[in-house]
């Protein structure tokens, strides 16, 4: 009797209020997935019930996406840019974070603040002059423009995140290594980096996601079809004037989100810890 009452209370107090949140969070994604598998005939049929597929699952939109657009190139561009920009940024960030947390040198505090301020500078503030800079570097209309500019927001972010992680590692381990005769560089590579792997992993995941999801720079720096990143490519090429190719758009949105969703499902705990440490430790 008591147990039953407890169960009901749990259902009413926890599960029931969660339902609207879950529907709100998941419905748009489910809706995109359903739409991408519908035939055009069903997609544009006002009398059909939109919540399920009644006239057969159709792969036409995916076929259109893969064979009639440069989707494969866009995905490949997204991977190239995201991996390269992330790799460059992490090397820079690990060095900077270590120096700022562990080494005492004049100007360190000022530099830490500079990193923090840069972290908050919105893209929308800098995209117009950045466009000029990219032209000046001869990178206009090339995905390399993104490899060069993405570190501007990845480095502050990753440095800040890795700094938070390094602060939580006791100094004594490094000091022991220094006294044993290791040089600073050796300490960095043989002691600090191996211990900081979880923090670095977390920064890597977030950086990759930020690159993959970036839109404003990817939209404004690049106009050639074959240089585009996946999100911009899907939106720019499947909306032609006033005509929206909804089926293919949904297929593209789902497929271009998949790599990020995979990364996130595998590393959910890293995402969680990164989010929370980013928030509480700044």
């Amino acid at each position: 009797m008591n147990q039953a009452r407890q169960l009901i209370r749990k259902a009413l107090g926890t599960y029931l209020p969660l339902v609207p949140f879950l529907i709100f969070a998941l419905f748009p994604v489910v809706w995109m997935l359903i739409s991408s598998f519908k035939s055009d005939r069903e997609l544009y049929d006002l009398s059909a019930t939109p919540f399920w597929i009644s006239k057969g699952i159709v792969l036409a939109h995916y076929r259109e996406l893969f064979f009639e657009t440069s989707f494969v190139t866009w995905i490949s561009n997204s991977f190239q840019v995201s991996i390269l920009a992330t790799a460059i940024s992490l090397v820079i960030s690990v060095f900077a974070a270590y120096a700022l947390v562990r080494l005492r040198f004049p100007g360190a505090a000022v530099f830490a603040v500079a990193i923090f301020v840069t972290y908050l500078v919105p893209h929308a503030l800098l995209f117009l002059p950045m466009n000029q800079v990219v032209n000046f570097l001869g990178l206009a209309d090339s995905r390399w423009a993104l490899v060069v500019t993405y570190p501007t927001f990845l480095v502050p972010f990753s440095t800040w995140l890795i700094m938070g992680y390094l602060k939580s590692i006791p100094k004594e381990i490094e000091e022991a290594a220094l006294i044993d005769g290791c040089s600073r560089i050796q300490v960095l590579f043989k002691v600090v980096i191996p211990i900081a792997i979880p923090g670095i992993m977390c920064a890597t995941l977030f950086s990759f996601t930020l690159c993959w999801n970036e839109f404003l720079y990817a939209l404004t720096f690049i106009s050639s079809t074959t240089e585009k990143m996946a999100p911009v490519g899907v939106i720019a090429e499947l909306i032609r004037g006033d005509i929206y190719f909804w089926g293919a758009l949904m297929a593209g949105a789902i497929t271009a989100s998949l790599p990020i969703v995979f990364v996130y499902v595998f590393f959910l705990d890293y995402f969680m810890s990164g989010l929370t440490s980013g928030a509480t430790k700044g």
């Binding site: 995109m32 999801n213 499902v265 995402f271």
Partner: peptide
């Protein structure tokens, strides 16, 4: 764990792409 993961989904997928989904809605 499942619910926490599911709740995070909107924040993970590219905003530009989910916005296209909303536009269709």
């Amino acid at each position: 764990r499942f619910v926490r993961g599911a709740i995070l989904l909107p924040w993970v997928i590219p905003a530009a792409l989910s916005t296209i989904g909303w536009m269709w809605m």
